[in-house]
Design a protein around this nucleic acid. Structure first.
Length: 140
DNA sequence: GCCAACGTTGGC
DNA sequence: GCCAACGTTGGC
């Protein structure tokens, strides 16, 4: 039996790196994280973990799913002790799930995205993950 | 080890 | 563009 996967929300400003771009690229090196808590979350990721891709600043919505394709390794952009993972797109939501919709959903009241708004990589429970995907109409 | 200053993020 | 929140840095 496969080990259970974990779930995360990763944030990106679409003007810097959008979900569209990830789909065009087919995969991406998720690097440049310079926050200890976010780094620790990156390091806890395993290949196969599920990601929700959130657009910050513009959109303010979860737009799609992605998957971890390579567990944490040295961030290639620095000599310092930071980490990167590789990710691949795993389906766009039929309807993006906006920040307001998540705030309004009682079952998402403990969502890390809401309680730790400045953290760029936050864990979510399987239930939260699946609920957000369901609110978004799935990936069709 | 504390705390003030500073920089960055991100919602509004 | 503003401002609040918060993480990080650096002086003491």
């Amino acid at each position: 039996m496969l080990p259970p996967v974990a779930y995360w929300i990763v944030k990106s400003e679409p003007s810097k790196y959008s979900y569209d771009q990830l789909e065009r690229d087919g995969s991406a090196v998720w690097d440049g994280v310079r926050n200890f808590a976010a780094r620790n979350n990156l390091r806890a990721m395993k290949k196969g973990d599920g990601l929700l891709f959130y657009h910050s600043q513009e959109g303010k919505e979860v737009v799609g799913m992605a998957r971890v394709t390579r567990a944490a390794y040295q961030d290639p952009g620095t000599e310092e002790d930071w980490s990167a993972v590789d990710v691949a797109p795993a389906g766009r939501l039929k309807r993006p799930v906006g920040l307001a919709a998540m705030k309004a959903e009682p079952r998402l009241k403990d969502l890390g995205l809401l309680s730790r708004p400045r953290l760029s990589v936050v864990p979510v429970s399987r239930a939260e993950f699946e609920l957000i995907v369901r609110i978004g109409g799935g990936t069709g």
